[in-house]
Amino acid sequence: MSIQHFRVALIPFFAAFCLPVFAHPETLVKVKDAEDQLGARVGYIELDLNSGKILESFRPEERFPMMSTFKVLLCGAVLSRVDAGQEQLGRRIHYSQNDLVEYSPVTEKHLTDGMTVRELCSAAITMSDNTAANLLLTTIGGPKELTAFLHNMGDHVTRLDRWEPELNEAIPNDERDTTMPAAMATTLRKLLTGELLTLASRQQLIDWMEADKVAGPLLRSALPAGWFIADKSGAGERGSRGIIAALGPDGKPSRIVVIYTTGSQATMDERNRQIAEIGASLIKHW
């Protein structure tokens, strides 16, 4: 067993022997301040990774656009098919120029040779490549099948209805392509620590998230040296922004954090800054 596999296998073990965790309302004060600064709703939840206990939450059962955070769930569904012998990570998928959609920095470079399922998941999570996500959605049967996968996990809230990039439209009061912070946090925890996926697939999923290259201005910008984070960000229309993450000190994750916002007129930089400040408060009061 590799060191990384050992780390993920012992996530519940280490967490069980940690000192009790206590909620700190100071972080919620910052979440509410972010709402004021952005002029928009902000949803927040913080779960203990081992027990699933909610440590703090704000608007945990209000719907927010998922945006690209759905790509972690998508690759979880792909990995479940791999575990069941219905898919192979090494299978190569070929596609054409007509398949390319807006923001496809990886797939646009491989029109000639195609990409493997493993490479597509890596591109979808680490670079948020939209064509990679659409190609992977095709392998599982489309958005409705991802929703069905989530329902089978016990998540009857999260739903995907459309493809990239239309799913980022974020129309107010439109339930399409949305989740709730509580539902997303619980589902992410199941994917990373539950028995739904094999140990190898859980490790692969967290490795992809740990290698995320496009979430630097968010929670990662607030992390002290030595902290662990595996995350996936999302951005959408109407001032929408979000991030889902597993993080913790001492090089291992111990909490799940989900943050979503929508309806702001603020710039992307300002949305990023507010999420980073929430992260800084979380870490300060850990």
Rank of each mutant, 00 (worst) to 15 (best):
K252D: 15
D83H: 09
A235R: 03
N50P: 07
M67H: 13
R271L: 12
G279R: 01
I171F: 15
L218A: 06
I171K: 15
P217I: 05
P224A: 06
L100T: 08
L137T: 07
D250Y: 04
R41Q: 09
I278S: 00
G234Y: 01
V78M: 10
A280D: 15
L73K: 01
D113V: 04
S57M: 05
N272L: 02
I256P: 01
K232Y: 00
Y260P: 01
E87V: 09
H24G: 08
L55E: 09
P249S: 10
A245F: 03
T112P: 14
R162N: 14
L120I: 08
A133M: 00
H24P: 04
E237D: 09
L146Y: 04
V157C: 05
A124K: 01
L79R: 00
R189P: 02
L49P: 11
L47G: 12
D99R: 09
E164H: 00
L282V: 13
A123N: 06
G251M: 14
Y44T: 02
A230T: 02
S96F: 06
G142L: 02
P143Q: 14
R59S: 11
H94R: 06
D177M: 01
R59I: 01
I54G: 08
R220I: 03
K53M: 15
R41C: 10
A222E: 10
M66V: 13
S128T: 02
E26L: 14
K213M: 06
I229C: 15
Q203L: 04
E108R: 14
L188V: 04
Y103Q: 08
A132T: 02
E46L: 10
D33Q: 14
A133R: 01
L137N: 12
I229D: 01
R220S: 11
S264Y: 10
V157I: 13
R92Y: 15
I171G: 15
E61A: 10
A133F: 02
V101G: 06
W286D: 03
I259E: 00
E61C: 15
T178R: 02
A266P: 06
P249G: 08
A123F: 03
M180D: 14
K30I: 07
G226V: 03
A34E: 03
L73I: 06
E26I: 15
T178E: 02
R202T: 13
V106D: 11
E169S: 06
G76P: 00
M127F: 14
A225E: 08
G154H: 05
T112M: 11
R202L: 05
Y260A: 03
L120Y: 02
I229Y: 15
M184I: 04
G43S: 07
S221D: 12
L191V: 15
N50A: 09
A123I: 12
R176Q: 04
K71S: 00
R92E: 14
E175W: 11
C75V: 06
P60V: 06
T131G: 07
Q88D: 14
H110C: 06
L89S: 10
R41N: 11
W163P: 06
H285W: 08
L120S: 04
L191E: 03
L79A: 10
D212K: 03
V106L: 12
A225Q: 06
M209I: 02
L191K: 02
W163S: 11
K30Y: 04
V42K: 00
I93Y: 06
I140V: 12
T186R: 14
I54Y: 15
Q203K: 04
L150M: 14
N50K: 14
S128E: 01
A230I: 11
P143F: 10
G194S: 12
N173K: 10
S104A: 12
Q86A: 07
R81P: 01
A84L: 13
G251P: 11
L73V: 13
E26G: 15
V31I: 08
K144H: 14
E145H: 12
A211S: 11
D161K: 03
P60L: 13
H110W: 15
E119W: 02
I93V: 12
L188C: 06
A246L: 12
V106E: 10
I259S: 02
P249A: 08
R159V: 10
R63Y: 14
A124Y: 01
I229L: 14
A182H: 13
S51C: 05
G236R: 01
I278N: 02
N50G: 09
L188G: 08
V31Q: 00
M115R: 05
K32R: 08
I93L: 10
Q88F: 05
L160C: 08
L55T: 12
K109R: 12
N152A: 11
W227C: 02
E195C: 14
A211P: 13
A34F: 09
W208M: 10
P224R: 05
R271C: 14
E26C: 12
I125M: 05
N130L: 01
G226F: 13
R189S: 07
Q97S: 09
E35M: 13
D83A: 08
D36W: 13
D250I: 04
T178C: 05
G52W: 08
M127E: 12
T139H: 08
A200W: 10
G239H: 15
D83S: 09
L28Y: 10
G90T: 05
A132D: 01
G194R: 15
G43P: 00
A276F: 09
Y44C: 02
Q37P: 07
E145Q: 10
E145Y: 07
T198R: 11
C75R: 01
T126L: 06
P143D: 03
V157S: 08
R91K: 13
S68R: 00
E108Q: 09
R189T: 07
E164I: 01
G52D: 14
G39W: 10
I93H: 05
A40E: 08
G85L: 10
A235Q: 08
L247K: 00
L100K: 14
T131N: 06
G39A: 10
D48Y: 03
N134Y: 13
L38V: 06
E270F: 03
S128K: 01
T138Y: 15
E175S: 12
H24N: 12
V31R: 01
Y260H: 01
E46D: 10
S96M: 10
D99G: 06
G114N: 12
D212V: 05
E61W: 09
S281N: 15
Q97V: 11
R162L: 05
T147Q: 07
M115T: 06
R91Y: 12
L120Q: 02
T116I: 05
I243F: 12
V257I: 14
D207F: 06
L135P: 01
Q274S: 08
T178D: 02
I256V: 10
P224S: 08
G279N: 04
H156E: 08
G194C: 09
A132W: 01
L120R: 01
G234H: 01
E164A: 00
T126N: 05
Q88H: 08
V72W: 02
R59E: 03
L196P: 10
I278K: 01
